[in-house]
């Protein structure tokens, strides 16, 4: 075989017959197709060389619908390499056939996911949250309270005087809270969630009877400050928006019923939740300082709750709340 000859199979596009041919690069820059009864020459400009994905022979498109599957050693491809239309396909083919390309793709995929999860989704959620009017947020809070009332809560059985004391604690926090924060306390009894306090959208704080009985007044104030911290940063709304955005993104990636994506979604939500807990803890400590109180009761009630419910040895990855030790360390309590 001469150096400027390439073997191949020719298909004319009119029948399924395969004709063995040679493609010859002529000195005048034209290509000659020769084989069987065929002998055709064409200028390079009228031809198109195309590489299918993976390891396969390139295809030389001949004018009039013919096609040559050609054994190229790279020299034929080089003839067409200067065309702008071939730049992107060649780049793709390079990435698909080289280790460095695979590594780059891995980095790009990981970077995109990490960027979206750590930066993009929270940013999107806070943007939407900023656009949502406070009245809508409050309505959301009312709706979730109504739902909880139906499912898990019964009205509080605390004595009137005891209820008033808790209300007064909330008023203390409201006095030092930022202008926009409107707190509202709801007292409930619940067998399902036991000694607990929650923050619903729109600044609604729910405290259970069991918690009021378990905690001293200072501890209760600390817990309320923590929940007010959630309210101040609009965590309930953010959580709602973020989990919706996550579900949407996961759905777009085709993973509605993929257990792996479901697990990833859960782990991410947990990590968002833990971030929020730390932020609320820091806020609570700051509020207590402004009220000239020590943050110590906050950590003592955490210890009490831990004893009340029993500690868990699960890794933090699987939990919505960080461990007490970690919270204490991060919130600067001692």
């Amino acid at each position: 075989m001469r150096v400027d000859e390439f073997e191949g199979l020719y298909f004319d596009g009119r029948s399924s017959r395969a004709v063995p041919v040679v493609v010859v690069l002529l000195p005048n820059g034209q290509l000659l197709l020769r084989g069987g009864e065929l002998e055709q020459r064409q200028p390079l400009a009228l031809l198109r060389l195309e590489q299918p994905p993976g390891r396969a022979r390139p295809r030389l498109h001949w004018p009039g619908g013919g096609l040559v599957e050609v054994n190229d050693d790279g020299r034929l491809a080089a003839l067409f390499a200067r065309r702008p239309a071939t730049v992107l396909p060649r780049l793709l083919h390079w990435a698909e056939t080289h280790r460095a390309g695979a590594l780059g793709a891995l980095l790009l995929a990981g970077g995109t996911i990490a960027g979206a999860v750590l930066g993009g989704l929270p940013l999107l959620a806070s943007l939407v949250g900023a656009l949502l009017p406070p009245a809508a947020e409050r309505q959301l809070g009312e709706a979730s309270l109504a739902g909880l009332d139906q499912e898990a809560f019964v009205p509080s059985r605390l004595a009137e005087a005891q209820q008033q004391r808790v209300h007064k604690l909330v008023a203390n926090i409201q006095a030092i809270a930022p202008e926009h924060l409107r707190l509202r306390l709801e007292l409930r009894d619940s067998a399902t969630i036991g000694a607990n306090a929650l923050c619903l959208p729109g600044g609604i704080l729910v405290v259970t009877d069991a918690l009021v009985k378990l905690a001293t007044e200072d501890e209760l104030l600390a817990v309320l400050a923590h929940e007010a911290g959630h309210a101040q940063h609009r965590h309930p709304l953010q959580m709602l928006l973020r989990s919706h955005a996550l579900a949407l993104a996961s759905g777009l990636m085709g993973g509605q019923d993929n257990p792996i994506q479901g697990l990833a979604q859960n782990l991410l939500q947990n990590s968002y939740s833990r971030t929020f807990e730390h932020q609320a803890d820091r806020e609570a400590v700051a509020m207590l300082r402004r009220l000239n109180r020590s943050p110590a009761p906050f950590f003592s009630i955490l210890t009490k709750l831990e004893e009340h419910e029993g500690t868990t040895q699960l890794p933090s990855l699987l939990l919505t709340h960080p461990s007490r030790r970690e919270r204490q360390a991060r919130a600067g309590g001692s």
Binding site: P53, G54, R55, L92, A95, E96, T97, G101, A102, G104, A105, L106, L108, A109, T112, I113, M253
Partner: peptide
């Protein structure tokens, strides 16, 4: 078709689709 080859094509597709 080979696994290694398709794995790279799949990886590039996945990365570019995500990005």
């Amino acid at each position: 078709g080979r696994t290694g080859e398709y794995f790279q094509i799949w990886l590039v597709n996945l990365a570019l689709s995500l990005a």
